[in-house]
Nucleic acid binder design. Structure first.
Length: 800
RNA sequence: GCCUGCGUGGCGGAAUUGGUAGACGCGCUGGACUCAAAAUCCAGUGUUAGCGAUAACGUGUCGGUUCGAGUCCGACCGCAGGCACCA
């Protein structure tokens, strides 16, 4: 297309003026189909070629589905709260609101220049008060149903900047801004009881069609494990101390116990612990470490023995020593473990360091080299002696524990409650009020939204509180309960909040009575197809599913899972096969490509570059190849004759292409979709002339990926816009070629090819195969043992 | 360490249920058109040997199943991503 930028603008306006992509909620004449792509974070850097890849893939799907007669909902919006916008604003001395407005403008312009068929009538930003009103409203529902609570939690704290850091900003245990060592500081934070939903989130996966790798990501994150709780007794006081283990079969091998440094029982027992100073010092030491350091693997085990305390192993009734160590986490299980150094690597390391005895209870391995974690015959294990495998031993031990009341079966999840507070300005204010007299009180729902104040200062405070804390006018309010003086919560919600339900809002984006009406949600039902980045498949998806399941349980959404298919796209890497980054200087800007080659070329290339779910490097040379292909399609217009119907010689390849392309698109094989069209275009090019209908078929099949030029060429043929066309269907009977070349093998090696016709029976094919010149050379003088004929595919002759 | 994905020409990648490995595109080589260039078109292009027909080898490595393996099974090596002291 010589004037591609003009043509692209022309059709972009045409689509807008004719509302071609508007989804009408409630249209009963069509089947609804909801296609979603992750709404972007509108950063200052503008749209990335990676965005273009997933948006194009979904746009292709949306355009095909429309032609197939579906009522397609394909919306777009903005996920604009969060730290990057705040930091960008601080750095550039502008209000985050203005920064976001600017960035959205840029992003939207870029998207429109690429011709994506979004329904812009449903556009919103998570930062719009009309939207975050409902995010706040939903938080109140969590609170009212006992799902939100305040708890003391450690946060990453930079003592130099006096600021709370996200895990990303504290990566490597060092403050990103000033380079100081990050420590842990306790802060009261709002929490959502997501761990209550662990089992439902796991089971719910059965009702979805997520890609396997996505499902696995969810399963790993939830981290279900089945084991047992076993009660040990403190010898000196008789207090119960419970551990969690998945290996209760090794109870006879327990030689010590380890508690997390924060374990609450330490305070209770402090009068008995004779080296409490040392214990306190270790607790401080553990706390001074960042989450990063603490979870760093392969580091030396550290810890302190609790002098004056021993616990009784309920099975052996022997006393063992107790230690504290930071390799035991308070957040998982009971914060206490029974240590079996013979059969656990971490316990083994610890035992070696502190000279604790090691008792082998399973045969196998070489304990001078490390713990044996495999299966085997039980030894030194009382009533378990003679058991030959883990499974039976665990079952027997559990039975025994239950019988004697010493323990019980227990399921644990790694999934923890969701820390919902951020000490930031640029987020949804949490609509809670603290009154000295009445405690925490929710705001009245009718007073929502609680707007972010419009102020000049939003830099972080020295105390680690949100910048909102400085705005006394805003903070001071009255208690909704008693009417006395009270203060607002100054923390804001995390970035994940607004993105946990935005797909529901798209179903009914302008509703000012509800976050979305039940009628609208019942009409659209679910997101049929959701694409996004691999980096969001674990957390964003889990948060969104949790949010939806909660809304379902209180009767506000029609389905427990509101997303059916989830697929994650691969990254677009730089030409050097590295992740694109400014510092590497390998960033490709989509605007430059659109300007020089046109949107259709960029779209086609990004679909052609490789497997959609796999990373692929950028190549401007290959991009030019796609431009050449589109130019060739344009030149074919000169070959159009005035004959009616389709050319006879093209019927087979046309039907084959329709089938191939339709199947390819259904399985997201965009690169082979393009290649099939290249083959078709080459077949057209081989002919002297083609008919109008031949040509139009190619244009329609190509339209989803190259919508502008195909619309233009289609118009030149005198047809109505492809927006009103139907997706072509194929005729099974036209797929079979009358004549076909197949290979003939001798002992598995191809020796010749023969032409067969549809009417040939097996004997005829056999004869043709055996008579082929080169086949005879390889069979002469040999015994033919067997001739295998796979009809329409291959002949294999076995000789001796 | 665990989980997941991937290893195919000079390059990006095809091969949907085992059936002509390398579709399609890029690049490269030669040719046509042109005063010349660009664009376009034609031919060739896995490696080795041969003028050629053809032959041998060839999908990370080793082994297996099969008339037939890139595809299935077993062991291993390498790369990428995710989780990570989870008891």
């Amino acid at each position: 297309m010589r004037n591609f930028s003009e043509i692209e603008k022309k059709w972009q306006s045409y689509w807008q003026e004719h509302h071609c992509f508007q989804a009408v909620t409630g249209d009963k004449s069509k089947t609804p189909y909801y296609i979603l792509v992750e709404f972007p974070y509108p950063s200052g850097a503008g749209l990335h070629v990676g965005h273009v890849r997933s948006y194009t893939a979904q746009d292709v799907l949306a355009r095909v589905k429309r032609m197939q007669g579906y009522n397609v909902l394909f919306p777009m919006g903005w996920d604009a709260f969060g730290a990057p916008a705040e930091q960008y604003a601080i750095k550039n001395h502008i209000h985050p609101k203005d920064a976001v407005k600017e960035n959205i403008h840029t992003f939207k312009g870029q998207m429109q220049s690429l011709g994506f068929s979004f329904d812009w009538d449903r556009e919103f930003s998570t930062t719009d008060p009309e939207y975050y009103k409902w995010t706040q409203w939903q938080f109140l529902q969590f609170y009212k149903h006992g799902m939100a609570y305040k708890a003391k939690k450690d946060v990453n704290w930079c003592p130099t900047c006096k600021s709370v850091l996200s895990n990303e900003d504290a990566a490597g245990g060092v403050c990103e801004r000033c380079g100081s060592k990050v420590v842990q500081k306790e802060k009261e934070q709002w929490m959502l009881r997501m761990s209550d939903y662990a089992e439902d989130l796991l089971k719910g996966l059965d009702d979805t069609h997520f890609a396997d790798r996505v499902k696995l990501g969810q399963i790993n994150w939830i981290g279900k494990s089945t084991g047992a709780e076993v009660d040990f007794t403190v010898q000196e006081t008789g207090d119960k101390l419970t551990v969690y283990t998945t290996r209760c079969d090794t109870l006879f091998g327990v030689t010590f116990m380890v508690l997390a440094p924060e374990h609450p029982v330490l305070e209770k027992l402090s009068s008995l612990i004779t080296n409490m100073d040392e214990v306190k010092k270790y607790q401080e030491f553990a706390k001074s470490k960042s989450a990063f350091e603490r979870t760093e693997v392969n580091k030396d085990k550290t810890g302190v023995k609790l002098e004056g305390i021993t616990v009784i192993n309920p099975i052996t009734e022997k006393a063992v020593e107790v230690f504290i160590s930071d390799y035991v986490m308070m957040g998982y299980g009971t914060g206490a473990i029974m240590a079996v150094p013979a059969h656990d690597e971490r316990d083994y390391e610890f035992a070696k360091k502190f000279n604790i005895p090691i008792v082998q209870v399973i045969e196998g391995g070489d304990l001078s080299k490390g713990a044996y974690t495999g299966d085997g015959k039980m030894i030194n294990s009382g009533f378990l002696n003679g058991f030959t495998n883990k499974k039976d031993s665990i079952a027997r031990m559990l039975e025994y524990l239950k019988e004697k009341g010493l323990g019980r079966e227990k399921v644990n999840y790694r999934l923890q409650d969701w820390i919902f507070s951020r000490q930031r300005f640029w987020g949804e204010p949490i609509p809670m009020i603290y009154c000295e007299k009445c405690g925490w009180q929710p705001m009245k729902e009718e007073e929502l939204p609680l707007l972010l104040p419009d102020v000049a200062e939003y830099e972080p405070t020295d105390t680690g509180e949100s910048p909102l804390a400085k705005i006394t006018d805003w903070v001071n309010t009255i208690c909704p309960c008693c009417g006395g003086p009270a203060k607002r919560e100054t923390d804001t919600m995390p970035n994940w909040a607004g993105s946990s339900w935005y797909f529901l809002r798209f179903m009914d984006a302008h509703n000012d009575k509800e976050f979305a009406s039940m009628d609208a949600m019942k009409y659209w039902q679910k997101v049929n197809w959701y694409n996004g980045g691999m980096e969001h498949t674990a957390r964003h998806l889990l948060y969104a599913r949790f949010w939806v399941q909660f809304l379902y349980n209180i009767g506000l959404v029609p389905n427990k899972e509101m997303i059916d298919v989830r697929v994650s796209h691969g990254m677009v890497l730089g030409p050097d096969n590295q992740k694109m980054s400014k510092s590497k200087g390998n960033v490709i800007n989509p605007d430059d490509i659109v300007k020089e080659y046109g949107a259709d070329t960029l779209r086609t290339y990004e679909m052609f570059m490789g497997d959609y779910q796999q990373d692929a490097p950028w190549s401007t040379e290959s991009l030019r190849g796609c431009k050449r292909f589109l130019d060739k399609v344009e030149r074919l217009a000169q070959k159009v004759n005035d004959k009616a119907g389709y050319s006879d010689s093209l019927v087979v390849i046309q039907n084959k292409t329709i089938k191939a392309v339709t199947d390819d698109l259904a399985r997201m094989s965009y690169n082979t979709y393009i290649s099939a069209l290249m083959i078709l275009a080459n077949a057209y090019d081989d002919l002297e002339s083609i008919t109008k209908e031949d040509y139009r078929l190619l244009l329609i099949l190509l339209n989803p990926v190259a919508p502008h030029m195909t619309e233009e060429l289609n118009e030149q043929l005198g047809y109505d816009s492809i927006c009103y066309a139907s997706w072509p269907t194929y005729d099974e009977t036209c797929l079979v070629e009358k004549e076909k070349e197949i290979a003939v093998q001798v002992n598995g090696k191809v020796r010749a090819t023969i032409m067969i016709s549809v009417d040939d029976n097996e004997d005829v094919i056999k004869e043709k195969a055996l008579n082929a010149e080169n086949v005879k050379r390889h069979t002469d003088g040999k015994d033919i043992v067997k001739v295998i004929v796979i009809k329409g595919k291959i002949v294999n002759i076995v000789v001796k």
